[in-house]
């Protein structure tokens, strides 16, 4: 048995899984606060990656400035999408809304292929040192940054929803919109904020993935990969999204290991998460962390 490879793949799984977790959080955030299943989440991520790359390559801006500009762009983008596309759909059946987000995802995909092209492009070199040595292990700086950013985003999410005024307002809106309004919370603002945050954070994930590998149309596939993660964790649980993301990431890489070493079927990596999805749905239809309603007895 190839222990080194297994270890390597497990670490990979955790790194990728954390990123899935981040995107899953964005997905859950929108679903929870606005009851929209956003099939275009992967395109948000890809758009962020492309826009940041564009700033860095075309305008040769320093990384942090390009990064911040991208964040600003994505926030505005999220708000505009919410206002133009989803606000008119408030109160429509969920299936119509799903159709619209699927359509929007195709639209964005084509638009981005048209503007940015189809070939994969790598980010310019951002870190001086490409590899750091931690306790005898050589670790790529990009991977370290990936972990650090993912964890940082998760901590910020946690603090935001636990302590901040707007975080509490968003949770109240997710619980019951009428109650939230009776407290003086503007639902319109909450919806806009949910989409803005979701777009910005997805973009961060996109940029990280772009830096670790490269930016290409294939990145939007993560939007689909995130589904098993979200469903495993429970559609309405942000913690569940993170746990689901890590589980999917690790299992994906384990599947790769088993396949590469023993089975030689090929492409297990791609489909394993969906098998897991089916099994989990059979055992726990509401996901691992899907919260039941509180009933006092």
């Amino acid at each position: 048995m190839n222990w080194d490879l297994l270890f390597q793949l497990l670490i990979n799984g955790v790194i990728v899984g954390l990123l899935y977790g981040v995107v899953a959080m964005c997905f859950v955030l929108i679903y929870k606060s606005t009851q929209v299943v956003n099939f275009a989440q992967g395109e948000f991520l890809l758009l962020g990656a492309w826009v940041c790359l564009y700033f860095l390559v075309e305008y040769e801006l320093p990384f942090w400035i390009g990064f911040l500009l991208t964040m600003g762009f994505m926030a505005v983008f999220g708000i505009v999408v919410q206002m133009l596309i989803l606000r008119p759909l408030i109160g429509e059946p969920i299936i119509s809304i799903i159709m619209v987000t699927i359509g929007f995802s195709s639209f964005m995909q084509s638009l981005m292929s048209w503007i940015f092209g189809n070939s994969a492009v790598s980010y310019p070199k951002i870190f001086e040192v490409e590899v750091v040595n931690i306790g005898g292990l050589n670790v790529e700086t990009a991977y370290l940054m990936s972990i650090a950013m993912s964890v940082a985003i998760m901590i910020i999410f946690f603090l935001f929803f636990r302590y901040s005024r707007f975080g509490l307002a968003m949770r109240a809106t997710a619980y019951n919109q009428q109650i939230a309004q009776s407290l003086g919370i503007s639902i319109k603002h909450v919806f806009m904020m949910a989409w803005a945050i979701s777009a910005v954070v997805s973009a961060v994930a996109g940029i990280i993935i772009g830096m670790v590998s490269a930016v290409s149309t294939a990145l939007s596939f993560i939007g689909i990969k995130v589904f098993p993660a979200v469903i495993v964790g429970g559609m309405d649980s942000i913690v569940g999204g993170v746990v689901g993301g890590v589980i999917i990431g690790v299992l994906e890489n384990l599947a790769e290991f088993v396949d590469g070493q023993y089975l030689h079927i090929g492409n297990m990596y791609q489909i394993a998460p969906f098998y897991i999805l089916i099994v989990i749905l059979m055992i726990k239809p509401y996901g691992l962390f899907g919260t039941p309603d509180i009933e006092r007895v």
Partner: peptide
């Protein structure tokens, strides 16, 4: 103060109070 109390059941008591001061 809404009929049927209208508190946010999955938040804690203190979080509910804090929400009251949202504006």
């Amino acid at each position: 103060v809404m009929e049927g109390r209208g508190i946010v059941q999955d938040m804690t008591l203190l979080e509910n109070l804090k929400l009251g001061a949202f504006t």
